[in-house]
Amino acid sequence: MTEPIVPGGISCREVVELVTAYLEGALDPDTRARFEVHLELCGPCFEYVEQIRATSRLVAVAATELDERPDRDALLKAFRAFHKET
């Protein structure tokens, strides 16, 4: 019987529970190191962590109105300042 394979000594099932603690910097140094070894060896978990990061960013973006546009007055001001410079 071959040895079970668990990259970094943390299973994928554990990774999805530890991901927030990892991103928050709340893992103890040893667990953090093993978590990172796992991510280096496991493509799906690497993708999973990236998805959690992307989710966090998308939550921020989703809070802006869908039809919201950048502040036009501020932009015009920046353009005018730029023209003066050149």
């Binding site: 071959t2 079970p4 394979i5 668990v6 299973s11 994928c12 099932r13 554990e14 493509g43 799906p44 978990c45 993708e47 999973y48 990236e50 998805q51 990061r53 992307a54």
Partner: peptide, 22 residues
């Protein structure tokens, strides 16, 4: 979505996440 504990890859992905982050 994870493999059983008596698997060669205990607790590993059986149905890995569909990739979309990139």
């Amino acid at each position: 979505r994870f493999r059983p504990l008596d698997d060669r890859y205990p607790g590993g992905w059986a149905v890995p996440p569909h990739a979309w982050a990139r």
